[in-house]
Design a protein around this nucleic acid. Structure first.
Length: 198
DNA sequence: AAACGGATTGGCT
DNA sequence: GCCAATCCGTTTC
């Protein structure tokens, strides 16, 4: 049920970004367990990707997490306000990752509603990378956590989407990435209410 | 040492 | 639709 470490060692971040649609993302905090169905992702393919923090092999205090073994959480602060959750993929020292952009609330709805101060049927509760992370209680303390551990993990409950149910587009908010700005590396569930900009 | 800008969101016009 | 919020890695002086 819980995805094993071997799942995350796949060096194909694009494949994993697609494959993660429909998987269930869980978090456990002092307040309880919450979970959401992953419905929107983006792939960042590492040192050759101009949109990646690890472009050119950059290693800093922040990006060091991305060089961890696949199955590690890379959480960073964006615009000084929002925590964004990435799943590191591939083997150690190959800094590829998948950004979780949107989930559909599935478990612990009351806790998610408290964190976001809005009802779970309001799609803004977990739509967009900052909102998805906040609804699941993810902050910088989750950085470097492993997905096979006690605080964060992903389960496969056999939800799958066909190619025609899956949308593909360029990644959001990376215009600075020049020739990599238009690559089709964003994947989403077309009929999900919790995906914006379809 | 200082300035710049971003894998975004929500509130106000 | 526009714009402020607000931190920190990176760039520039």
């Amino acid at each position: 049920m819980k995805l094993p470490l071997s799942y995350y060692l796949n060096p194909d971040a694009e494949f994993l970004a697609r494959d993660l649609l429909g998987k269930i993302l869980f978090t456990r905090t002092d307040y309880g367990i919450t979970a959401g169905i992953i419905v929107e992702t983006e792939a960042y393919f590492g040192t050759g990707d101009k949109a990646s923090h690890a472009y050119g092999g950059r290693r800093t205090g922040r990006t060091e997490t991305m060089y961890s073994e696949g199955g590690t959480a890379y959480v960073y602060l964006c615009y000084g306000i929002h925590h964004l959750l990435n799943i590191v993929t591939s083997v150690k020292d190959d800094p590829k990752c998948v950004l979780i952009r949107s989930v559909e609330p599935l478990e612990g709805l009351e806790l998610m509603e408290m964190r976001r101060k809005m009802p779970a049927d309001c799609t803004a509760i977990s739509s967009g990378p900052g909102s998805a992370a906040k609804s699941l209680g993810i902050d910088s303390s989750f950085n470097m956590d492993v997905f096979t551990g006690e605080r964060i993990w992903i389960e496969d409950r056999a939800i799958t989407y066909t190619a025609s149910q899956t949308g593909v587009s360029s990644r959001i908010g990376i215009a600075y990435a020049q020739e990599h700005a238009d690559l089709p590396l964003r994947f989403f569930v077309k009929d999900s209410r919790y995906v914006k900009n379809k």
